[in-house]
């Protein structure tokens, strides 16, 4: 991958990678840091990485960074507070469907959340998602199905919300 291709990857993927990171860890500064680290690693290993595989490399790196941060957050019991937030939102009916989905998304496990994000936002195939998440196609499909099902349960009766 040369300089021009790297620039193209930056232009094409920076926003998507930032969104993926932000949706995963919910902390803006850490999401920025993940994007920065991912692109830095891409630049360091640019000689070994094909242009076609660059996007997958970025998301794989970002996903692993997210996992690290999420585990760290879990150790700090930060997730307990996050989990309590959606229930409050549901009770107060003051947030929209988008915010509700975001909160519901945060309650999924990392694998389900990342799979759904990559599928819906990036439009990746099961195979591509499997490459990033280190799963096979069937496993990816199952994870997405279970994740969406869980989202339904968290959100509850859509008609009530809408």
């Amino acid at each position: 991958m040369n300089q021009e291709e790297y620039q193209q990857i930056v232009n094409d993927c920076a926003d998507a990678l930032y969104r993926f990171s932000l949706k995963n860890i919910k902390v803006i500064e850490e999401a920025k840091e993940i994007v920065q680290n991912s692109f830095e690693k891409l630049w360091i290993h640019r000689e070994k990485i094909d242009f076609q595989r660059a996007k997958s490399f970025l998301f794989t790196t970002a996903y692993r960074n997210c996992i690290d941060i999420i585990r760290k957050q879990k150790n700090e019991s930060a997730l307990d507070m996050i989990k309590s937030e959606p229930q409050q939102h549901l009770n107060t009916h003051v947030i929209g469907l988008k915010a509700l989905l975001d909160n519901a998304l945060s309650q999924l496990n990392e694998l389900q959340r990342s799979a759904i994000l990559l599928r819906d936002y990036e439009g990746y195939s099961y195979l591509e998602i499997g490459d990033i998440l280190d799963l096979n196609e069937s496993q990816v499909k199952i994870q997405i199905f279970r994740g969406r099902k869980k989202l339904q349960n968290i959100i509850g009766n859509v008609e009530d919300i809408l």
């Binding site: 926003d15 969104r19 988008k98 989905l101 819906d120 936002y121 969406r148």
Partner: peptide, 10 residues
């Protein structure tokens, strides 16, 4: 509802 709509976060 469980399908996320695309949004742009620069």
């Amino acid at each position: 509802v469980s399908f996320l709509e695309s949004e742009h976060i620069p």
